[in-house]
Design a protein around this nucleic acid. Structure first.
Lengths: 210, 210
DNA sequence: TACTTAACTTAACAGTGTTAAGTATCGGAG
DNA sequence: CTCCGATACTTAACACTGTTAAGTTAAGTA
């Protein structure tokens, strides 16, 4: 089965060729620069050729983000080594923040765009949900559960899921506000690092026992 | 000067006619449903007629949001009556959250969309910046300054602006995540009210002295 | 009455995502 | 070796989008 495999491989090659061209436009000029025609120009194919490999533009972007977010979740594998759960939580927050600032286009598409807009069709992610190695939310969940089991949270906090969501919300707030409004001179913005660090520290102080 | 004034008034009338049609589409079907042609259909004019009253689509949307956000800031005038600054802060947070959920389209355009996308031209807001009656940020600033002056914040917090931005970030995080990802079944979302309230309480506990 | 200008309309341009229809190439079956 | 059908494309077109150039109409003014 020589030619059969070769065709399969060639198909995969052109798929990643499209994906890479789309990614380059996506990260360098933002999602609105990713047009089917511009991708096609970049790889020297006709625009319609892309539709042979991806259902539509949405599917292409979804796969792109899926792939890059799996890589993101893997960043946490190093952090997982940190013994102290509080320090681990701190480090996870910092890693999350870093990723958001380094990949604003991805961040925006994944967390700042209503699903109704991105996913008209029933999008199916290939990320292994619940597996902390591929799912950053699950990773955070693990830390929080450990902290709660050890009685480190204030007594009125008994819901792991709620605590996770509150922490995520706060950190997401700093990142998304930075991405959306960093160039806005309405506000006398303090340095991003200070905002991020203070937010993490304050939310930790609010959640943990003294 | 009869006819002159009448023309002026008529001009203002068609302006608000356009604005109202745009708002209806905007709030009921989201910003992507606001097309010049759909607005034109609604008011039974040709699409190009709109350009006589607004520079372009962006200017139209900017004016729409500006106008509605002034109304939003005025909600705080009632809250300004609350004597205890902590209670006032709590109420302000709740009001902010309410507005976001009631006006997701406005919220998204104002706080979740990078300025580079909305404002290609130099947009000039007509909101009186720094005036707490028209500027919600300034209102929050006032509360935080009062709390800090009264020594209610933890000693390491000495920067009013930073504290304001941390509080805003946290609350914005809950609201924006709800708007963007409420339909996402990846996460076992706790009720929004619980998330909002817990976030506000935790951030207060983190910032204030015990 | 003649002129100007404000307030439009129609037609068109350049761009978008997407699809229908046609074409060439190539692996495998008879 | 030939023919067939699938694969991987291309070209042309459709239905949208924001926006503009040019033409029209009505009203106020001199």
């Amino acid at each position: 089965m020589g030619p059969r495999e070769r065709r399969e491989r060639e198909r995969e090659e052109i798929r990643t060729l499209i994906l890479d061209a789309a990614r380059e436009l996506f990260v360098s000029e933002g999602v609105e620069s990713v047009t089917m025609r511009r991708i096609a120009d970049k790889i020297e194919y006709s625009p319609t050729a892309i539709y042979f490999h991806f259902k539509d533009k949405e599917a292409l972007l979804a796969e792109l983000c899926d792939c890059d977010f799996r890589a993101f979740a893997q960043r946490f594998n190093v952090i997982a080594q940190i013994a102290d759960p509080v320090e681990r939580l701190r480090a996870a927050g910092a890693a999350y923040v870093d990723f958001g600032l380094e990949n604003p286009s991805h961040y925006r598409l994944m967390f700042m765009t209503p699903k109704a807009i991105t996913a008209k069709t029933t999008e199916v992610s290939t990320i292994d949900k619940g597996n902390p190695e591929e799912d950053a939310y699950a990773f955070l969940q693990g830390i929080v559960a450990e902290l709660m089991a050890k009685g480190r949270f204030r007594d009125e906090l008994t819901d792991v899921e709620l605590a996770v969501q509150v922490i995520w919300s706060a950190v997401h707030g700093v990142v998304s506000l930075e991405i959306a409004k960093c160039t806005d001179d309405w506000v006398a913005w303090r340095p991003f690092a200070a905002r991020a660090q203070t937010t993490i520290e304050m939310i930790l102080r609010g959640l943990l026992k003294e």
